[in-house]
């Protein structure tokens, strides 16, 4: 039991099991349908990719508030650059823009010694401002031939009846889990967040580790934006608005502790699943959809308390 509890995503697993049990009791016929599952899993995939990036940053004891704006900017870049660069070129350019933002923010945090909350809050506003300026505050069309291009369908189409985003999320999760749990870099990420001084003394380049995680976080946010727009290429200046809060919530519900050094990528995806599922169920139960944000706040607080208790049970000092 103790071994199971030690898993950082254990709290999220319990959350999912409880949630499914309750939903089955109150709304089995509405919840357990192929359409509901498809809807919930599709959005979980998008939010899950954002949440995994956020989880990596939180594991290093930092936070990234700019992911919603970066998600939006990369998506907008994909649409706006497509006429000049083609679909593949636009995707690459959008990811490079996202990576550059991540590196810049990471550099400001590490080299400037600034709190990541302030740096990325600045990033959130700056990037949102760029979206306004670039789009002129308006929506932009994506040509029909670009929508039907193979690369667009690869990211936004369907595979075996499921949205491509779901497979991309699974691929990203597998790859990042491998990196986190089976490579030196993954070890360094956890060491940096656990105790930067101790990690420094053992030769871990904690600054570089943090910059790389900020970059990964931005790239994943950008990638999620591209997946969204490849599926439904309808932009708006508000694209990604408040998604940073959902991503952080998903990561925290999934077992990431803001004190760093502990977290779970799978837990972050499960956190995204919980958030998305509750959005559906609240609407299904007839609650005003604006209650959703209240729910996220309550679950977030409950999850933090629960995850801290679990961590203490597992012998961690948090």
């Amino acid at each position: 039991m103790k071994h199971l509890v030690k898993g950082q995503g254990f709290g999220a697993v319990i959350g999912v099991v409880l949630m499914l049990a309750v939903f089955s009791l109150i709304d089995a016929s509405g919840w357990w349908t192929a359409q509901t599952m498809s809807n919930v899993i599709h959005y979980t995939a998008i939010l899950g990719i954002l949440a995994m990036g956020q989880a990596l940053v939180i594991m290093t004891k930092e936070i990234d508030l700019s992911v919603g704006s970066v998600y939006g900017l990369a998506g907008i870049a994909f649409i706006m650059l497509q006429p000049a660069l083609g679909v593949a070129g636009a995707i690459l350019a959008a990811l490079m823009i996202a990576a550059a933002i991540g590196v810049l923010q990471g550099y400001a945090v590490v080299r400037g010694g600034l709190p990541s909350m302030i740096v990325t809050l600045g990033g959130l506003f700056t990037v949102r401002g760029i979206i306004y300026v670039w789009t002129g505050g308006s929506v932009k069309a994506f040509p029909e031939e670009a929508r039907n291009a193979f690369v667009t369908r690869l990211f936004g189409g369907e595979i075996l009846g499921l949205e491509a985003a779901v497979f991309w999320m699974l691929a990203v999760a597998a790859m990042l889990n491998l990196v986190l749990w089976a490579t030196r870099f993954g070890n360094h990420v956890l060491a940096t967040g656990g105790s930067a001084e101790s990690a420094d003394s053992r030769g871990v380049l904690t600054g570089r580790v943090k910059i790389v995680t900020f970059m990964l976080c931005s790239v994943l946010a950008g990638f999620a934006g591209i997946l969204t727009l490849a599926d439904q290429p309808q932009t708006h200046v508000t694209i990604g608005d408040l998604m940073e809060l959902e991503a952080i919530s998903a990561a925290v519900i999934g077992g990431c502790l803001l004190s760093g050094g502990r977290g779970s990528l799978t837990g972050a995806v499960l956190g995204a699943f919980i958030i998305t599922s509750f959005r559906y169920e609240l609407i299904a139960l007839g609650a005003p959809s604006s209650w959703f944000i209240t729910f996220v706040g309550v679950v977030l607080i409950v999850a933090v308390i629960f995850n801290q208790k679990l961590a203490r049970m597992a012998g961690h000092s948090v």
């Binding site: 959005y43 439904q232 708006h236 508000t238 959005r279 559906y280 299904a284 139960l285 007839g286 959809s289």
Partner: peptide, 21 residues
Amino acid sequence: ELFIGAEPATARNTMQSYLQA
């Protein structure tokens, strides 16, 4: 009246949830 927000993916998810329910 359904509040969908102005974020496209979230709005679609909210509308889809409503239509299913």
